[in-house]
């Protein structure tokens, strides 16, 4: 009858794990290239205000991101690693800002389809700390899902040509 106590005791903790899939309207090689392109990342990362390369596969960013009224400014670093072109890589990001700190590691896999499109799947582990974690944890999963969804939609829009690379987010975010 003993409950395992070292497992996270509550669902919906600030340790956010999300998985998903998206169909990208381009061949895998183009999707791969887009996801490595800082200009595309700057467009796709929700609320991205600044993204500067600091080395091979590493970037500094500043963003203002949020959902509805819950909104915060973050600054931090992005690293692309475990690159197996054109099939998979890991995007890691850590950031800190007014509502708290966040870090995430997204494992992205690309699979070519026979129709020339690409099936993208991802698994993200996120960790959120600080204010937002202590007062709004039950919202985090849904917010994270929405932000990740926006990211891939944006990338796809760039690939499809509906959003030009170099397009900037409005200063206040979405």
């Amino acid at each position: 009858m003993r409950r395992p106590r070292d497992e996270p005791r509550h669902e919906g903790a600030c340790f956010v794990k999300i998985s998903g899939a998206a169909t990208m309207h381009a061949p895998a090689s183009r999707v791969w290239a887009a996801l490595q392109d800082p200009e595309v990342l700057a467009v796709a990362i929700p609320g991205c205000e600044r993204l500067e390369p600091t080395g091979p596969g590493t970037y500094q960013f500043a963003l203002c991101v949020g959902v509805a009224w819950i909104r915060g400014r973050y600054a931090g670093n992005i690293k692309l690693s475990e690159q197996h072109e054109p099939s998979s890589f890991v995007l890691s990001a850590t950031g800190a800002g007014i509502p708290g700190s966040a870090s995430t590691s997204v494992h992205i896999r690309l699979a070519s389809r026979s129709d020339g499109l690409t099936e993208l799947t991802y698994d993200a582990d996120g960790e959120v700390g600080g204010l937002i974690a202590t007062v709004g944890p039950s919202l985090l999963g849904a917010i994270a899902r929405r932000l990740v969804g926006r990211f891939f939609t944006r990338v796809d829009n760039v690939l499809a040509g509906t959003t030009p690379a170099g397009w900037a987010w409005p200063a206040t975010g979405s």
């Binding site: 005791r9 903790a13 974690a133």
Partner: peptide, 16 residues
């Protein structure tokens, strides 16, 4: 006190 595994207290308000 609902701590998650990273040590965040998830209910630091009278709401939760």
């Amino acid at each position: 006190m609902a701590y998650d595994e990273t040590g965040q207290l998830l209910n630091a308000s009278f709401m939760d």
